[in-house]
Protein backbone atom coordinates (compact mmCIF):
# COMPACT_ATOMS: atom_id res chain seq x y z
CA UNK A 1 0.00 0.00 0.00
CA UNK A 2 3.00 2.26 0.10
CA UNK A 3 2.10 4.20 -3.07
CA UNK A 4 -1.49 4.95 -2.20
CA UNK A 5 -2.16 8.67 -2.34
CA UNK A 6 -5.90 8.81 -2.97
CA UNK A 7 -8.93 7.31 -1.30
CA UNK A 8 -12.23 7.87 -3.14
CA UNK A 9 -15.80 7.46 -1.99
CA UNK A 10 -18.05 7.06 -5.03
CA UNK A 11 -21.74 7.12 -4.22
CA UNK A 12 -22.90 5.03 -7.14
CA UNK A 13 -21.54 2.27 -9.32
CA UNK A 14 -21.12 4.51 -12.32
CA UNK A 15 -18.88 6.90 -10.37
CA UNK A 16 -16.84 4.01 -9.07
CA UNK A 17 -16.24 2.71 -12.55
CA UNK A 18 -15.19 6.07 -13.95
CA UNK A 19 -12.85 6.64 -11.01
CA UNK A 20 -11.22 3.41 -11.98
CA UNK A 21 -11.06 4.32 -15.66
CA UNK A 22 -9.28 7.60 -14.83
CA UNK A 23 -6.47 5.93 -12.92
CA UNK A 24 -5.29 2.52 -13.98
CA UNK A 25 -3.41 1.91 -10.71
CA UNK A 26 -6.64 1.72 -8.82
CA UNK A 27 -7.97 -0.95 -6.51
CA UNK A 28 -11.52 -1.34 -5.23
CA UNK A 29 -11.82 -1.69 -1.50
CA UNK A 30 -14.74 -3.12 0.48
CA UNK A 31 -13.92 -4.92 3.73
CA UNK A 32 -10.27 -4.27 3.08
CA UNK A 33 -9.11 -6.97 5.48
CA UNK A 34 -6.69 -8.40 2.98
CA UNK A 35 -5.82 -5.15 1.29
CA UNK A 36 -4.62 -3.21 4.30
CA UNK A 37 -2.04 -5.84 5.07
CA UNK A 38 -0.24 -4.48 2.05
CA UNK A 39 -0.25 -6.78 -0.91
CA UNK A 40 -0.96 -4.58 -3.88
CA UNK A 41 2.05 -2.38 -3.97
CA UNK A 42 1.45 -0.39 -7.13
CA UNK A 43 -1.97 0.88 -6.13
CA UNK A 44 -2.23 4.66 -6.19
CA UNK A 45 -5.97 5.09 -5.83
CA UNK A 46 -8.31 3.19 -3.59
CA UNK A 47 -11.97 3.24 -4.51
CA UNK A 48 -14.34 2.46 -1.66
CA UNK A 49 -17.29 0.45 -2.94
CA UNK A 50 -19.06 -0.03 0.39
CA UNK A 51 -21.31 2.97 -0.12
CA UNK A 52 -22.91 1.89 -3.39
CA UNK A 53 -25.90 0.11 -1.90
CA UNK A 54 -24.57 -3.28 -2.90
CA UNK A 55 -25.29 -4.93 0.41
CA UNK A 56 -28.86 -6.13 0.05
CA UNK A 57 -30.01 -9.68 0.48
CA UNK A 58 -33.06 -10.43 -1.66
CA UNK A 59 -35.34 -13.43 -1.46
CA UNK A 60 -36.45 -14.49 -4.93
CA UNK A 61 -38.61 -17.37 -6.02
CA UNK A 62 -35.78 -19.50 -7.25
CA UNK A 63 -32.73 -17.54 -6.30
CA UNK A 64 -31.38 -15.80 -3.29
CA UNK A 65 -29.54 -12.69 -4.34
CA UNK A 66 -26.78 -11.42 -2.09
CA UNK A 67 -25.20 -8.02 -2.75
CA UNK A 68 -21.46 -8.08 -3.16
CA UNK A 69 -20.60 -5.85 -0.21
CA UNK A 70 -22.77 -7.80 2.22
CA UNK A 71 -20.56 -8.79 5.13
CA UNK A 72 -20.12 -12.43 6.04
CA UNK A 73 -21.72 -11.70 9.41
CA UNK A 74 -24.81 -10.29 7.72
CA UNK A 75 -24.97 -13.36 5.52
CA UNK A 76 -24.54 -15.65 8.52
CA UNK A 77 -27.33 -13.90 10.39
CA UNK A 78 -29.70 -13.68 7.44
CA UNK A 79 -32.75 -15.95 7.53
CA UNK A 80 -32.78 -15.71 3.76
CA UNK A 81 -29.22 -16.99 3.35
CA UNK A 82 -30.09 -19.81 5.72
CA UNK A 83 -32.48 -21.10 3.08
CA UNK A 84 -29.70 -21.74 0.61
CA UNK A 85 -28.67 -25.37 0.32
CA UNK A 86 -30.38 -26.39 3.59
CA UNK A 87 -28.15 -24.02 5.52
CA UNK A 88 -24.85 -25.01 3.92
CA UNK A 89 -24.03 -21.46 2.85
CA UNK A 90 -24.63 -20.24 6.39
CA UNK A 91 -22.32 -22.95 7.69
CA UNK A 92 -19.62 -21.92 5.24
CA UNK A 93 -19.96 -18.31 6.41
CA UNK A 94 -19.54 -19.45 10.00
CA UNK A 95 -16.18 -21.01 9.19
CA UNK A 96 -14.66 -17.91 7.64
CA UNK A 97 -12.09 -16.09 9.81
CA UNK A 98 -13.35 -14.95 13.20
CA UNK A 99 -16.15 -12.67 14.36
CA UNK A 100 -14.47 -9.26 13.90
CA UNK A 101 -13.14 -10.42 10.54
CA UNK A 102 -16.55 -11.68 9.43
CA UNK A 103 -17.88 -8.26 10.36
CA UNK A 104 -15.58 -6.73 7.77
CA UNK A 105 -15.09 -9.36 5.08
CA UNK A 106 -17.60 -9.11 2.25
CA UNK A 107 -19.02 -11.71 -0.08
CA UNK A 108 -17.47 -9.98 -3.07
CA UNK A 109 -14.07 -9.73 -1.42
CA UNK A 110 -14.15 -13.39 -0.54
CA UNK A 111 -14.80 -14.55 -4.11
CA UNK A 112 -13.31 -11.87 -6.36
CA UNK A 113 -9.73 -13.11 -6.40
CA UNK A 114 -10.09 -16.83 -5.74
CA UNK A 115 -7.66 -16.96 -2.86
CA UNK A 116 -7.41 -20.63 -2.03
CA UNK A 117 -7.87 -19.99 1.69
CA UNK A 118 -11.16 -18.19 1.09
CA UNK A 119 -14.27 -20.04 2.19
CA UNK A 120 -16.87 -19.23 -0.42
CA UNK A 121 -15.43 -19.96 -3.89
CA UNK A 122 -16.16 -23.67 -3.50
CA UNK A 123 -19.69 -22.76 -2.42
CA UNK A 124 -20.22 -20.93 -5.68
CA UNK A 125 -19.35 -24.13 -7.50
CA UNK A 126 -21.52 -26.60 -5.65
CA UNK A 127 -24.47 -24.22 -5.46
CA UNK A 128 -24.31 -23.29 -9.17
CA UNK A 129 -24.20 -19.64 -8.24
CA UNK A 130 -24.29 -16.90 -10.82
CA UNK A 131 -22.20 -13.79 -10.41
CA UNK A 132 -23.40 -10.49 -11.74
CA UNK A 133 -20.61 -8.17 -12.73
CA UNK A 134 -20.34 -4.70 -14.21
CA UNK A 135 -17.40 -3.65 -16.30
CA UNK A 136 -15.83 -0.19 -16.73
CA UNK A 137 -17.97 0.33 -19.86
CA UNK A 138 -20.94 -0.01 -17.50
CA UNK A 139 -21.98 -3.21 -19.17
CA UNK A 140 -23.57 -5.64 -16.77
CA UNK A 141 -23.02 -9.31 -17.39
CA UNK A 142 -23.47 -12.59 -15.56
CA UNK A 143 -21.05 -15.42 -15.27
CA UNK A 144 -21.68 -18.87 -13.98
CA UNK A 145 -19.56 -20.05 -11.10
CA UNK A 146 -17.56 -22.41 -13.26
CA UNK A 147 -16.73 -19.63 -15.67
CA UNK A 148 -15.78 -17.29 -12.86
CA UNK A 149 -13.37 -19.89 -11.55
CA UNK A 150 -11.99 -20.61 -15.02
CA UNK A 151 -11.48 -16.88 -15.55
CA UNK A 152 -9.38 -16.83 -12.39
CA UNK A 153 -11.73 -14.41 -10.67
CA UNK A 154 -12.85 -11.04 -11.89
CA UNK A 155 -11.03 -8.80 -14.30
CA UNK A 156 -9.34 -5.64 -13.09
CA UNK A 157 -11.77 -2.78 -13.19
CA UNK A 158 -14.88 -4.91 -12.97
CA UNK A 159 -17.12 -4.78 -9.94
CA UNK A 160 -19.12 -7.68 -8.64
CA UNK A 161 -22.68 -6.49 -8.08
CA UNK A 162 -24.22 -9.54 -6.55
CA UNK A 163 -24.29 -13.30 -6.45
CA UNK A 164 -27.41 -15.32 -7.14
CA UNK A 165 -27.60 -18.58 -5.26
CA UNK A 166 -30.19 -21.11 -6.35
CA UNK A 167 -31.76 -22.59 -3.22
CA UNK A 168 -31.15 -26.15 -4.39
CA UNK A 169 -32.94 -27.48 -1.36
CA UNK A 170 -33.81 -30.74 -3.01
CA UNK A 171 -30.10 -31.50 -3.11
CA UNK A 172 -27.87 -32.97 -0.45
CA UNK A 173 -25.17 -30.53 0.67
CA UNK A 174 -22.00 -30.85 2.68
CA UNK A 175 -19.22 -28.39 3.47
CA UNK A 176 -16.04 -28.95 5.43
CA UNK A 177 -13.13 -26.76 6.42
CA UNK A 178 -10.32 -28.73 8.02
CA UNK A 179 -7.72 -26.69 9.88
CA UNK A 180 -5.48 -26.92 12.93
CA UNK A 181 -7.68 -24.66 15.06
CA UNK A 182 -11.12 -23.31 14.31
CA UNK A 183 -9.76 -19.88 13.47
CA UNK A 184 -6.97 -20.96 11.18
CA UNK A 185 -6.21 -20.90 7.52
CA UNK A 186 -7.83 -23.96 6.07
CA UNK A 187 -5.78 -27.02 5.21
CA UNK A 188 -8.54 -28.32 3.00
CA UNK A 189 -11.92 -26.92 2.08
CA UNK A 190 -14.43 -29.21 0.43
CA UNK A 191 -18.00 -28.72 -0.71
CA UNK A 192 -20.19 -31.44 -2.06
CA UNK A 193 -23.70 -31.45 -3.40
CA UNK A 194 -25.74 -34.25 -4.90
CA UNK A 195 -29.16 -34.60 -6.37
CA UNK A 196 -30.76 -37.91 -5.55
CA UNK A 197 -33.90 -39.27 -7.12
CA UNK A 198 -35.29 -42.58 -5.99
CA UNK A 199 -32.04 -43.60 -4.43
CA UNK A 200 -29.98 -42.76 -7.47
CA UNK A 201 -27.59 -39.89 -7.89
CA UNK A 202 -28.77 -37.83 -10.84
CA UNK A 203 -26.37 -34.92 -10.54
CA UNK A 204 -23.40 -33.98 -8.38
CA UNK A 205 -20.99 -31.18 -7.59
CA UNK A 206 -17.71 -31.58 -5.77
CA UNK A 207 -15.29 -28.70 -5.22
CA UNK A 208 -12.10 -28.28 -3.21
CA UNK A 209 -9.65 -25.52 -2.46
CA UNK A 210 -6.43 -24.78 -0.61
CA UNK A 211 -5.25 -28.32 -1.18
CA UNK A 212 -5.17 -27.19 -4.78
CA UNK A 213 -6.48 -24.15 -6.60
CA UNK A 214 -10.23 -23.64 -6.31
CA UNK A 215 -11.62 -26.34 -8.54
CA UNK A 216 -14.49 -28.66 -9.35
CA UNK A 217 -13.61 -32.35 -9.47
CA UNK A 218 -15.56 -33.39 -12.51
CA UNK A 219 -14.23 -36.96 -12.85
CA UNK A 220 -15.69 -37.76 -9.44
CA UNK A 221 -18.93 -35.96 -10.21
CA UNK A 222 -19.28 -38.01 -13.41
CA UNK A 223 -18.50 -41.22 -11.58
CA UNK A 224 -21.22 -40.48 -9.06
CA UNK A 225 -23.96 -39.78 -11.56
CA UNK A 226 -26.14 -42.79 -12.10
CA UNK A 227 -24.92 -44.56 -8.95
CA UNK A 228 -27.28 -45.92 -6.35
CA UNK A 229 -26.53 -44.14 -3.10
CA UNK A 230 -26.84 -47.35 -1.13
CA UNK A 231 -24.28 -49.08 -3.30
CA UNK A 232 -21.54 -46.50 -3.59
CA UNK A 233 -18.05 -47.93 -3.69
CA UNK A 234 -16.54 -45.54 -1.17
CA UNK A 235 -12.98 -46.76 -1.49
CA UNK A 236 -13.04 -46.50 -5.24
CA UNK A 237 -14.50 -43.01 -5.14
CA UNK A 238 -11.88 -41.97 -2.59
CA UNK A 239 -9.12 -43.21 -4.87
CA UNK A 240 -10.62 -41.48 -7.84
CA UNK A 241 -10.77 -38.21 -5.93
CA UNK A 242 -7.18 -38.54 -4.74
CA UNK A 243 -5.95 -39.21 -8.25
CA UNK A 244 -7.98 -36.29 -9.61
CA UNK A 245 -6.42 -33.67 -7.37
CA UNK A 246 -2.96 -32.30 -7.92
CA UNK A 247 -2.04 -31.34 -4.36
CA UNK A 248 -0.04 -28.12 -4.03
CA UNK A 249 2.82 -27.57 -1.59
CA UNK A 250 1.92 -26.32 1.88
CA UNK A 251 4.87 -25.94 4.22
CA UNK A 252 2.64 -26.55 7.20
CA UNK A 253 1.45 -30.01 6.32
CA UNK A 254 2.59 -32.82 4.04
CA UNK A 255 0.99 -33.80 0.75
CA UNK A 256 0.76 -37.34 1.99
CA UNK A 257 -1.39 -36.34 4.94
CA UNK A 258 -3.61 -34.03 2.95
CA UNK A 259 -4.18 -36.72 0.38
CA UNK A 260 -5.45 -39.03 3.10
CA UNK A 261 -7.53 -36.23 4.54
CA UNK A 262 -9.07 -35.59 1.17
CA UNK A 263 -10.21 -39.19 1.02
CA UNK A 264 -11.51 -39.34 4.58
CA UNK A 265 -13.50 -36.15 4.39
CA UNK A 266 -15.07 -37.13 1.10
CA UNK A 267 -15.86 -40.59 2.37
CA UNK A 268 -17.62 -39.08 5.36
CA UNK A 269 -19.63 -36.78 3.15
CA UNK A 270 -20.74 -39.77 1.10
CA UNK A 271 -21.61 -41.68 4.26
CA UNK A 272 -23.69 -38.74 5.40
CA UNK A 273 -25.40 -38.75 2.02
CA UNK A 274 -26.17 -42.42 2.50
CA UNK A 275 -27.58 -41.80 5.98
CA UNK A 276 -29.76 -38.97 4.76
CA UNK A 277 -30.98 -40.86 1.74
CA UNK A 278 -32.16 -43.84 3.72
Amino acid sequence: MKNVTEYKYPSNVSQALSLFSEQKHSTYIAGGTHLASGNRNNTIRLIDITRLGLNEIKDGDENIEVGATTTITDMYNSPIVKKVGKGVLKKACRLIGDTPLRNAITLGGNIARLYTWAGLPVMLLTLDAEIEIINPLEKTYSVEAVEHITNGGIRDGDIILNVKFPQKNSWFHAYEKFALTTVDYTWLTMAFAAEVKEGQITDARLAVSRITKVTRITPVEKALIGQLVSQLDLEKLKSLLKSSVDIVQDYRVSKEYRSQLLGVIFKRMLQKLQEETQ
Binding site: T181, V183, Y185, Y251, R252
Partner: peptide
Protein backbone atom coordinates in the same frame (compact mmCIF):
# COMPACT_ATOMS: atom_id res chain seq x y z
CA UNK B 1 -1.80 -29.53 20.27
CA UNK B 2 -1.15 -26.77 17.80
CA UNK B 3 1.89 -24.58 18.45
CA UNK B 4 5.02 -25.29 16.51
CA UNK B 5 7.96 -23.64 14.82
CA UNK B 6 8.20 -24.82 11.23
CA UNK B 7 11.71 -24.34 9.85
CA UNK B 8 12.85 -24.61 6.28
CA UNK B 9 16.10 -26.40 5.52
CA UNK B 10 18.00 -23.14 5.99
CA UNK B 11 16.86 -22.73 9.57
CA UNK B 12 14.34 -20.03 8.81
CA UNK B 13 11.06 -20.09 10.72
CA UNK B 14 8.32 -20.27 8.12
CA UNK B 15 5.33 -19.40 10.28
CA UNK B 16 6.21 -16.32 12.36
CA UNK B 17 2.67 -14.98 12.71
CA UNK B 18 -0.47 -15.65 14.73
CA UNK B 19 -2.04 -16.57 11.40
CA UNK B 20 0.22 -19.59 11.08
CA UNK B 21 1.46 -20.23 14.62
CA UNK B 22 -1.77 -21.35 16.15
CA UNK B 23 -2.94 -20.72 19.65
CA UNK B 24 -6.47 -21.58 20.68
CA UNK B 25 -9.31 -19.14 20.75
CA UNK B 26 -12.47 -19.43 22.86
CA UNK B 27 -14.07 -21.69 20.28
CA UNK B 28 -11.44 -24.45 20.66
Amino acid sequence: LSEQYIFNDKGKMMNPSFGNYKIMTTID
